[in-house]
Design a protein around this nucleic acid. Structure first.
Length: 1181
RNA sequence: GCCCGAGUGGUGAAACGGCAAACACGCACGACUCAAAAUCGUGUGCCGAAAGGCUUGUGGGUUCAAUUCCCACCUCGGGCACCA
C-alpha cells in the first residue's frame, strides 16, 4: 500500500495549480455566470492563526463547489495593510512600519498558499500600495467636493493611549476597541463623513437584502431610528424688548429683511427695527444704516440680528455703542468645506474694526452658519468668530438662504427658548420640568439670570471632567442642578416649570434637552422622585374587555368608578359577585361621586351590595385606567375611568343588603385564590384587568393608553394624540437617529494621508488630481505628538506645499484616514486591480458587482459592513460606479433595484475557541497553531476539520478539539486506503480507465457478482451515493459543511462494508464531491486513476477541480420498502417493513394483526388511526 | 433595562411537526502484537437484573403526534445601553 504522504502531495499540487493558473479569473467566461465570492481580507499581523484558517479555507469549499457547478468565480484576496499595529511596532521596537508590514505580507502570503485555497492571486490588493491609496484619496476628494466629507469641530472620542480620535463604532463600552484604554471626550476639529445623510437608506436598504435577520437587526439598532417631535419651550421673559434686523447683501432683494420674523416678534410685544440697507458693499452702507438707527434706543435688552452684509453693518453699530446689548446674532456664510477649483474675486471692505469695543458691547454672540457659500471673508462664520468670539451654530437648509426655513431658526435664537426632542408628544401636558444637558448652550446665554450660577458651573465642570465610561457607570444614581431663577413655559398649559441641568441628558442626541414627563418616563420618574419634582399623570392604560366587548349598536356612557377587590386571608378566598340574570362574575364595582375618594366609594358600595363592613384598606391595586366594556345590566357600553382598590376582610360582620333593582340576581360568592383566573370565572376576565390596571402605580407608565388631564385632548388615544398635540403647539415632526457622522481622521502615521491643503488666504482646498497620490513620506519619528497631531506634522519638508488655488505657501493636512476607509471599497478594486486610469473600470465592476456572497466576522456588523454600505451608496449617487449603476444614478429611481447595495448575501462566521472552551490567548496558553497541525496532518485535514467542527451557517463559537481532528484524518486515510488497496493507484490497472466507465472497481471476474445479495448491496450503494450527492450539494449551499461531511462519512462506512459493490463511476462521483473539502488528496487520487501507460496523466486529463459537479438521480433515492413505525397514542410500540405503495387500509390491517400491537391495545376501543405514508401509523385509543 | 441568538448524551453536534441523539470525539471491552502505538471489530443517553419506564433548560398550551409551533419563566452567549 502506498502511504498517504500529505506533505508531498499538498506541495506538489499547490505548485501545479499555481503554474497552471487554475484559479485565475477572467471577467467573463463563455456560457458561465459570474459569481463573486468575497471573504474579508486579513490584516498582515505576521502570522496566520486558526481564525484565518477558519475564515478562508472553509468558504473555499463553497467556492470550489460553485466552480465545479460551472460558475465563473471571482475569489480574490488581499491585505488590509494600514493600521496601528505596524506603527506601534515601529514605536516600540524601532521597525519601519512599511518594512514590517510588507515582510508580514510576504510571510502570510506563503502561509495562505499552503492552505490550498483557490484564490486568484493575480488580483491581490494591498491597501498600503500607492496604486491603491491613490484611489482612496481620489474617492475621498469626490466626497469632499460634494460636501459628503467635511471638517468640523465636535465632541469626539479620544483614545489617550493610541493618541488618536476614534469613530463611535470603534468604542465599545466606553473603551478603545483596539487597546482597551478608557476613551475621553474632546472637542476637536476633525474630518467626518456624512453617513447620517444615509441613515434612512441604510435602514430601508436592509429590507431587500438576503442577510440573516440578526445582522440586519444589529444594524437597525445601531442606526437607532426614532420618530417623534421637536417642541419649543419658551423661557419666561425670553423675549427682548427691542430687536434690530439688518438684512443681507444678496439674500433679501425686498425692502424688508425677514418680514415674517419682524411680524412674529412684534406680535409678541417687542419693538422691531428693520432699516432698508442699500444692496452694496460700499462702506457708505453703514452711514445710511446709522441714519435710520438714530431713532433706535439701544439698551442692554436689545438684540441685534445681522445677515451677511448686514453682519458687517451690525459690527460697526456695536462698535460704536456706549452700552452693551443683550445679544448679537450673526447669520454668516460658510466656505470651509467648499471645493474651490476656480479662483474667485474677493470683495473687500477696507473697514477696520475695533475688536475690543465690539467684544465689550456685543453681549452674547451667536453665529448661525448658513449653507450659503459666502466668498466674502468678512461674511464667513469662522472669521466673524475670530473677530468677536461667540458660538457657531450650524444651520443646514435644503438650499442656501432657504426662505421660510431660516427665519424660524433665527427666531429660536431671538427668543430664549429650549427646543426638546421627544418621542412622546402625547404626554406634553405632563411635562413638569425641562432638563438640559450640561453642555447645552442655553446655560451660557442665561447666566445673568441664573441665581445659583456658582453651583451650576460647578456641576457643569464636574460633568465635563467625567469620561463617557464614568458617566455610564453612574447610571444608577441621577444627579442634576436646578437653574434657579429660570423658568420654562409648558406650551400646552402655559404653566411655568423649572429648568434643570443633568448629565442623564446627552448633548449629542436630539437637541440636547428634554421635556421631563416623570409620570410616563422611567428616567424622569427616578429624577423627579429624587428631587421632589411634581409628577402629573396624563396617560392611563386602556383595557378593553374581550369577554364583554362594547357593542357598536349600543350607546356609551363614561363613568368614574372603582373596582373593589376583597380578600379573606383566613380562608384564602376572594369575594366576587355572580350575577345569575346576566351570567357574569365581577368584583364589587361602585360609581365614584363628584369629589369622593375612591376608597370611601368602594367601602360604601361594598356595604350596599354585600353587607360586609369590617374591611381593612390595604392598597391601591392599580389605576386610574380606562376600561371599556358592555354593561349588560344597563344595556349600554361603559367607558370607565377606574381605580382598583384592595381590601382584606377582618371579620364576617355584615349589615342588611340594600334591596333595590341593582342587586337583582346577584349572588355573593367566596372563591379560592387559585380559581381567581380568567378561564375559571363566568364570562369574566377581571383578574386580567386588575393585572393591567397595575401599570403606572408607583412607577412610570410608559405604555400607550388614553389621555387624561390633557385639556381638549382628554380621552384621546395616545397614539392619535402624538400628531395632534405636536400640531397644537406648533412643534415639528422629526426623526432622530443614534447614528453619528463617521469621524475618519486619525492622528497617526501609518495610514492614507488626507489629500487636503490649507492656505492662509484661500482656506481649505483639495489636492489636484494630477498630484495624487499624496505619498506617505518616510519619517524617523513615529511618535504621535499627543496633542492631537499626527507624527506627519513633524515631516516639515513634506508638510509645506503650494496652494492649488493661489500658488502661495500652504500646508498639508497631517491626519491620515481611518483604515475602515481603506476597506470600504477594496471589493471594487478586486474587479480591476491593475487599472491605472481609474479606481476600477465601470464595465468590469458591473460584471462582478454586487458581491454574491460575503463571508466575514460578526464583529464587523456595525463597523465595516455599515461603513462600506454607506461608501458604496455614496459612490453610487456620485455616479462613480458605472455600468447599470450609473444608469440608475437618479436618486428618484432608487428602490427599483438593489444597485446601491454592495453585498447581496452576507454570512457571519463564528469563532474557534481554544481546547478549554476559552477564547484563544497567549496568556491563557490555549493557542492552537494551525501550522503545527498542517505539518502533522496536512492542510486537507485541517480545513476539513474546521468545516466539521460545527455549522458554519451559525456564528457560534466552537472549541478546537485536538482529538477531534483525528477523526477527519482517519476518514481521509480510509479514502486513500480504499483507492490504494483497491489497486486504484497502480497505473497498469487503470490506464485507459476513461473507457471503462461503469466497470467494477475490483479486478475480480464479473461472474462473482451474480446472485441476489450482491445486487441488493449494489442497489443500496446506488441509493446512498445519490442521497449523499444530494445532501452534500444542498448542505454546501447552506454553509452546513459539518453535515455534508457526515453524509460522506456515512457513504464511506457503507462502501467499506461492501466495497465490491461500488462501481468506478460511483467512486469518481464520491471523489468529486469530496474534492472541495480535500482538494489535494482528491486531486492526487484523481490523477493516479488517470495515468497514461507511461505513467504521466492520461491524455485529456484535467484537474478534478475543473470537473463537473455530479448530479443525483431523484429516482434512485426511492426505496421499495420502508420500516413503518407503529405508534399507539403517539408512542412508538413497534415497526415492520412494508412496501412503499402500501395503502392505508392494508397498513391498518397489517398493524392491527401484530402481536405487540394487540398486546398494547389490550382490546381497547379504537378512536382514530392516522396513517402517514412512508413514515408511520398512529393508533389513538 | 432594551434588542437579537442559543439551551439536546461525558464532548463537538444531528434531526421538512412524524422512530431524539445521525456523524465524529472520548470511553469500555475484544482482535492483531512479546508489548505498546497505529489499525480493525463490538458496545456506549439515563434508571432498571429484566420486562419496562424516563429523557431535548422549567412550566403551560396547540396537535393523533412537539427538540421543532405559541405563551410565560430561568440560564448562558452576543449587540446596544440614561438615545428622551
Amino acid at each position: 500500500m502506498i502511504p498517504y504522504d500529505h506533505k508531498k502531495i499538498e506541495k506538489k499540487w499547490q505548485r501545479f495549480w499555481e503554474q497552471k493558473k487554475l484559479y485565475k479569473t477572467s471577467d467573463s467566461a463563455e456560457e458561465k455566470d459570474n459569481f463573486y465570492a468575497l471573504v474579508e481580507f486579513p490584516y498582515p499581523s505576521g502570522n496566520l492563526h486558526t481564525g484565518h484558517w477558519y475564515a478562508f479555507s472553509v468558504p473555499d469549499i463553497f467556492v470550489r463547489k460553485k466552480r465545479m457547478e460551472g460558475k465563473n468565480i471571482l475569489f480574490p484576496i488581499g491585505f488590509d495593510a494600514f493600521g496601528l499595529p505596524a506603527e506601534n511596532a515601529a514605536i516600540k521596537r524601532g521597525f519601519d512600519p512599511k518594512k514590517w508590514t510588507y515582510e508580514n505580507i510576504d510571510y502570510m502570503r506563503r502561509q495562505l498558499r499552503s492552505m490550498g485555497a483557490s484564490f486568484d492571486w493575480s488580483r491581490e490588493v494591498i491597501t498600503a500600495d500607492q496604486e491603491y491609496y491613490k484611489w482612496t484619496q481620489w474617492i475621498f476628494l469626490q466626497f469632499f467636493k460634494k460636501g459628503l466629507a467635511y471638517r468640523a469641530e465636535t465632541a469626539v472620542n479620544w483614545c489617550p493611549k493610541d493618541k488618536t480620535v476614534l469613530a463611535n463604532e470603534q468604542v465599545a463600552a466606553g473603551k478603545c476597541e483596539r487597546c482597551g484604554a478608557e476613551v475621553e471626550q474632546r472637542q476637536m476639529r476633525q474630518w467626518m463623513l456624512r453617513i447620517t445623510d444615509y441613515a434612512e437608506r441604510l435602514l430601508s436598504g436592509l429590507d431587500k437584502l438576503n442577510w440573516k435577520d440578526e445582522i440586519k437587526q444589529a444594524q437597525r439598532n445601531w442606526i437607532g431610528k426614532s420618530e417623534g417631535a421637536e417642541i419649543e419651550f419658551e423661557i419666561k421673559n425670553g423675549i427682548a424688548s427691542s430687536y434690530v434686523l439688518l438684512h443681507g447683501y444678496t439674500g433679501s432683494p425686498n425692502d424688508n429683511f425677514f418680514p415674517w420674523l419682524k411680524k412674529t416678534l412684534e406680535n409678541r410685544g417687542a419693538k422691531v427695527y428693520a432699516p432698508k440697507l442699500p444692496n452694496t458693499d460700499d462702506p457708505r452702507v453703514y452711514d445710511q444704516a446709522a441714519e435710520v438707527l438714530k431713532s433706535v434706543p439701544f439698551n442692554k435688552d436689545t438684540v441685534i440680528v445681522g445677515h451677511s452684509l448686514g453682519s458687517v453693518v451690525a459690527l460697526k453699530i456695536i462698535e460704536q455703542l456706549k452700552v452693551p446689548v443683550r445679544k448679537t446674532i450673526i447669520v454668516a456664510g460658510f466656505t470651509e468645506n467648499k471645493f474651490i477649483d476656480e479662483p474667485f474675486e474677493v470683495h473687500t471692505f477696507d473697514w477696520k474694526f475695533n475688536v475690543k469695543k465690539i467684544r465689550q458691547n456685543a453681549g452674547k454672540v451667536c453665529i448661525l452658519r448658513d449653507t450659503i457659500d459666502d466668498v466674502v471673508p468678512q461674511f464667513q462664520a469662522e472669521n466673524i468668530k475670530k473677530l468677536i468670539g461667540g458660538k457657531i451654530f450650524d444651520f443646514t437648509a435644503s438650499e442656501p438662504h432657504a426662505s421660510g426655513k431660516i427665519e424660524p431658526e433665527i427666531l429660536r435664537h431671538c427668543i430664549d427658548s429650549v427646543r426638546v426632542f421627544t418621542t412622546r408628544p402625547d404626554t406634553l401636558f405632563g411635562a413638569t420640568y425641562v432638563v438640559l444637558a450640561p453642555e447645552h448652550e442655553l446655560v451660557q446665554s442665561l447666566d445673568s439670570r441664573i441665581e445659583n450660577l456658582e453651583e451650576v458651573k460647578k456641576y457643569i465642570g464636574e460633568a465635563k471632567r467625567k469620561t463617557p465610561l464614568q458617566r455610564q457607570q453612574e447610571t444608577k444614581e441621577k444627579t442634576g442642578v436646578e437653574l434657579k431663577g429660570v423658568k420654562a413655559i409648558n406650551p400646552t398649559s402655559k404653566e411655568e416649570i423649572p429648568v434643570w441641568i443633568a448629565d442623564y441628558v446627552l448633548s449629542g442626541y436630539g437637541t440636547g434637552a428634554i421635556m421631563a414627563v416623570p409620570a410616563h418616563d422611567e428616567r424622569d420618574f427616578e429624577f423627579a422622585s429624587k428631587f421632589g419634582l411634581p409628577i402629573k399623570h396624563v396617560v392611563i392604560p386602556s383595557v378593553v374587555d374581550h369577554v364583554n366587548p362594547p357593542r357598536p349598536d349600543k350607546s356609551s356612557k363614561t363613568r368614574i368608578n372603582v373596582h373593589a377587590l376583597v380578600y379573606d386571608p383566613v380562608n384564602k378566598k376572594y369575594l366576587i359577585i355572580r350575577n345569575k340574570k346576566f351570567g357574569w362574575d365581577t368584583v364589587v364595582i361602585g360609581g365614584v361621586e363628584e369629589g369622593e375618594k375612591a376608597i370611601s366609594a368602594a367601602l360604601r358600595e361594598l356595604m350596599e351590595e354585600t353587607g360586609y363592613v369590617d374591611l381593612e384598606f390595604k392598597r391601591i391595586l392599580g389605576g386610574p385606567a380606562k376600561a371599556v366594556y358592555f354593561a349588560k345590566h344597563k344595556d349600554e357600553n361603559r367607558i370607565a375611568i377606574t381605580t382598583a382598590v384592595y381590601f382584606e376582610l377582618k371579620s364576617d360582620k355584615r349589615v342588611a343588603i340594600a334591596e333595590d333593582g341593582e342587586n337583582e340576581g346577584n349572588e355573593i360568592l367566596w372563591i379560592d385564590a387559585k380559581d381567581f383566573v380568567p378561564g375559571k370565572m363566568v364570562n369574566s376576565e377581571l383578574p386580567y384587568w386588575l393585572e393591567r390596571l397595575k401599570a403606572g402605580t408607583n412607577m412610570a407608565y410608559a405604555g400607550n393608553g388614553a389621555l387624561i388631564n390633557s385639556g381638549k385632548f382628554e380621552g384621546m388615544d395616545s397614539e392619535d394624540a402624538k400628531k395632534k398635540i405636536t400640531e397644537f403647539v406648533g412643534g415639528e415632526i422629526k426623526t432622530q437617529y443614534k447614528l453619528r457622522d463617521w469621524v475618519v481622521s486619525r492622528q497617526r502615521y501609518w495610514g492614507v494621508p488626507i489629500p487636503i491643503i490649507y492656505c492662509e488666504k484661500c482656506g481649505v482646498s483639495a489636492v489636484s488630481e494630477k498630484d495624487l497620490p499624496v505619498k506617505l513620506p518616510d519619517i524617523k519619528d513615529y511618535l504621535p505628538t499627543g496633542e492631537g497631531k499626527s507624527p506627519l506634522a513633524k515631516a516639515t519638508k513634506w508638510l509645506s506645499v503650494k496652494c492649488p488655488v493661489c500658488g502661495g505657501n500652504a500646508e498639508r493636512e497631517t491626519d491620515t484616514l481611518d483604515t475602515f476607509v481603506d476597506s470600504s471599497w477594496y471589493f471594487l478594486r478586486y474587479c480591476d486591480p491593475k487599472n491605472k486610469k481609474s479606481f476600477a473600470d465601470a464595465e468590469k465592476m458591473s460584471a462582478w458587482m454586487p458581491v454574491d456572497l460575503y463571508s466575514g466576522g460578526a464583529e464587523h456588523t456595525t463597523i465595516h459592513l455599515l461603513y462600506s454600505r454607506f461608501w458604496y451608496k455614496a459612490m453610487y449617487d456620485l455616479g462613480l460606479l458605472g455600468g447599470e449603476a450609473a444608469k440608475l444614478g437618479d436618486p428618484s429611481r432608487l428602490g427599483e433595484a438593489e444597485a446601491d447595495e454592495p453585498y447581496s448575501e452576507r454570512r457571519n462566521r463564528g469563532i474557534i475557541l481554544g481546547p478549554d472552551g476559552q477564547k484563544m490567548s497567549k496568556s491563557k496558553g490555549n493557542v492552537i497553531d494551525p501550522d503545527e497541525y498542517v505539518a502533522k496532518f496536512g492542510s486537507d485535514t485541517v480545513r476539513m476539520y474546521l468545516a466539521f467542527i460545527g455549522p458554519y451557517s451559525e456564528a457560534g463559537s466552537y472549541p478546537w478539539d485536538p482529538h477531534g481532528i483525528l477523526g477527519i484524518r482517519r476518514f481521509l486515510d480510509r479514502v486513500w486506503a480504499m483507492a490504494s488497496t483497491k489497486n486504484l493507484l497502480k497505473a497498469e490497472v487503470f490506464q485507459d480507465f476513461s473507457q471503462r466507465d461503469g466497470a467494477r472497481l475490483s479486478n475480480s471476474p464479473a461472474g462473482e457478482y451474480a446472485g441476489l445479495e450482491k445486487s441488493a448491496a449494489e442497489a443500496s450503494i446506488v441509493r446512498t451515493i445519490n442521497k449523499t450527492i444530494k445532501q452534500v450539494s444542498e448542505n454546501i449551499e447552506d454553509f452546513k459543511f459539518n453535515t455534508a461531511i457526515s453524509a460522506m462519512m456515512i457513504l464511506l462506512n457503507e462502501v467499506e462494508k461492501q466495497s465490491d459493490a461500488i462501481s468506478h463511476k460511483q467512486y469518481v462521483e464520491f471523489l468529486k464531491i469530496l474534492a472541495p473539502f480535500a482538494p489535494h488528496l482528491t486531486e492526487e487520487i484523481w490523477q493516479k486513476m488517470n495515468k497514461s501507460a507511461k505513467g504521466g496523466p492520461a491524455k485529456g486529463w484535467k484537474s478534478i477541480h475543473l470537473e463537473k459537479w455530479p448530479e443525483y438521480d431523484p429516482k434512485m433515492l426511492e426505496e421499495e420498502n420502508y420500516d413503518l413505525v407503529v405508534q399507539i397514542n403517539g408512542k412508538t410500540r413497534d415497526k415492520f417493513s412494508v412496501s412503499v405503495n402500501i395503502s392505508q387500509s392494508e397498513a391498518e390491517h397489517l398493524t392491527l394483526a401484530r402481536e405487540k400491537v394487540k398486546l398494547a391495545l389490550d382490546n381497547k376501543q379504537l378512536r382514530k388511526i392516522i396513517f402517514v405514508p412512508k413514515r408511520l401509523i398512529n393508533i389513538v385509543v
